Simulated scan of single mutants.
Amino acid sequence: MKFVNARAYADPEVAARKLMEIAFGVEPVQDGRVHIEKINWPFLSEFGGSPSEYKAGLTLAIERGWLWKHESGTFVRLTQAGKDMFA
């Protein structure tokens, strides 16, 4: 019998907090914009998250009001609530 190890970002709360940590560490370009690839690439490659974990974390961060995502999907902005997480 084989057992599967628990995934680090299977909980959307943990994934959302990791995405916030990554987004907070990225230097915004203009008007506080953070290009979406600056947070999805590290999450997927460096931290070993899956696309479904990324999507669940991003959705939760937006629902909680930590991030605001542009309609085009090309960038996000940290909201004040999101910035307050790291104050």
Rank of each mutant, 00 (worst) to 15 (best):
F3E: 13
T59D: 13
L19D: 05
V14N: 00
K38G: 11
S45E: 13
V76T: 06
P28S: 10
N40M: 12
L58W: 06
V76A: 02
Q80N: 13
G57E: 12
W68M: 04
A23W: 00
I22L: 15
L58N: 07
H35A: 15
A6Y: 04
V14E: 01
H70E: 01
G65L: 07
A6C: 08
L19K: 02
A61M: 07
P12E: 08
G82I: 07
A87Y: 12
W68K: 09
A56K: 06
Q30G: 11
S72F: 06
F43M: 07
G49T: 04
S72G: 10
N5P: 11
E27S: 13
Y9A: 02
I36S: 04
R64F: 10
K55A: 15
K18P: 03
M1F: 13
E21Q: 11
Y9L: 01
E46I: 08
A61Q: 06
E46W: 14
K55E: 15
E13K: 15
V14I: 15
P51F: 12
Y54I: 03
I22N: 07
A15Q: 04
G32N: 10
I39P: 02
A15R: 00
R7P: 00
S72A: 14
F47P: 00
K2C: 09
K2P: 06
R77W: 01
Y9I: 00
D31W: 03
R17D: 02
F86D: 08
D11A: 07
M85K: 14
R17Y: 03
G49L: 03
R17P: 01
S72V: 14
P42V: 07
P12N: 12
K18D: 06
L78D: 04
A87Q: 13
E63Q: 15
H35T: 09
V14M: 03
H70F: 01
K69D: 02
I36E: 02
H70N: 05
P28Q: 09
G73R: 09
G32I: 09
V34M: 03
L60A: 09
E46Y: 15
K38V: 07
V34E: 00
Q80D: 15
I39G: 04
P12Y: 09
S72P: 05
A16M: 09
S45I: 09
S72K: 14
H35W: 10
P42E: 12
S52G: 11
W66K: 06
A81C: 12
S52V: 11
L67S: 02
E63H: 15
R33L: 07
K55M: 15
S72Y: 04
D11H: 09
A81F: 05
L44S: 09
D31C: 06
I22W: 05
F24D: 14
D84W: 08
G57S: 13
M20E: 08
P12D: 09
R77Q: 10
A56D: 14
E46F: 11
A16K: 02
F24V: 14
R33G: 03
R7A: 03
V4Q: 14
L67G: 00
S45M: 15
L60N: 08
A16W: 02
I62L: 09
E71V: 06
V34S: 01
I62E: 10
A81I: 13
